[in-house]
């Protein structure tokens, strides 16, 4: 039997991650355009456009308000896309997972590799937005920004896990229309990216608390804006994101195990 030392076993997950990284390297420019330039364009459009109309929101100038939202958006979009459409094409079309599973790599490791990869890619775009936003003067607290990046990393894992759970249930590409319409878009629209969720009608505000994105923004905004963040609620947000990550991941693994091996 192989050694059970975790760092030795982790090399299998790392091998999967490295495969994705290598493929990405070969197409680096087009993916960079999508992942970094796209959210930055958003930032400019909303920052300049809305920023000209809205001077301050919740006591913050609009750039400071919208920058954390844009970072969260790029994490949401990149991780969700990679773990759904990206992973599904590897699974169902390129049969990349089949190739991996014919080796000592396990399904759990294939999925962990996918989740880590999607989160990694998401963080690249987050850092791109952060960099531009910081240069532009949207970051009030450097320490807060570091913590915000950690929160975004955790959230990226949650978004990736939900994407994988969706991939695990998808029968065709059409399935992802539901995923984007009923999951990704609401996370984007009703989570406080452009305006605080308490401006929403009450029932919708309550529903918005079911979205991981809402919790993410509640964490990230005070951090980058240098506002106080109460420890209790912050922990609740972190736990919420972690529960989604683990729950969705396990759901994906269970569904795929049945689907692929039965």
């Amino acid at each position: 039997m192989a050694s059970l030392a975790p760092w030795r076993e982790a090399s299998y997950t790392l091998a999967i991650w490295r495969r994705h990284f290598l493929v990405w390297q070969r197409t680096i420019y087009s993916t960079l355009a999508l992942q970094v330039v796209n959210p930055i364009l958003f930032l400019f459009a909303y920052g300049l456009g809305l920023g000209a109309v809205i001077q301050t929101l919740d006591g913050l100038d609009y750039l400071t308000f919208v920058l954390p939202g844009m970072m969260a958006y790029s994490a949401l979009f990149t991780a969700s896309f990679e773990a759904s459409v990206g992973a599904y094409s590897r699974y169902a079309y390129q049969k990349t997972w089949d190739a991996m599973l014919a080796t000592p790599v396990s399904l759990l490791e294939v999925l962990l590799g996918e989740a880590l990869w999607a989160a990694f890619k998401a963080m690249l775009s987050v850092l791109g937005v952060l960099l531009v936003g910081a240069i532009w003067g949207g970051i009030a607290s450097v320490g807060g920004a570091v913590l915000a990046v950690l929160a975004l990393g955790l959230a990226s894992l949650s978004f990736a896990a939900v994407g994988l759970a969706c991939t695990a249930h998808a029968k065709s590409w059409e399935f992802f229309n539901y995923y984007f319409t009923f999951w990704v878009t609401p996370n984007f629209m009703f989570s406080g990216v452009f305006f605080p969720v308490d401006r929403l009608p009450d029932p919708i505000e309550w529903l918005s608390w079911l979205l991981p994105m809402t919790h993410l923004i509640q964490l990230v905004r005070p951090l980058t804006a240098g506002q106080p963040l109460a420890l209790g609620p912050a922990l609740l947000h972190v736990v919420f994101l972690a529960v989604i990550a683990v729950g969705a991941f396990l759901l994906a693994e269970r569904r795929l195990r049945a689907r692929m091996f039965d």
Partner: peptide, 17 residues
């Protein structure tokens, strides 16, 4: 893993990268 490492598979369907 130990046993799986002792097998090589040529699948019917192409699954190269």
């Amino acid at each position: 893993r130990a046993e799986r490492a002792r097998i090589g598979l040529v699948p019917q369907e192409d699954n190269l990268d």
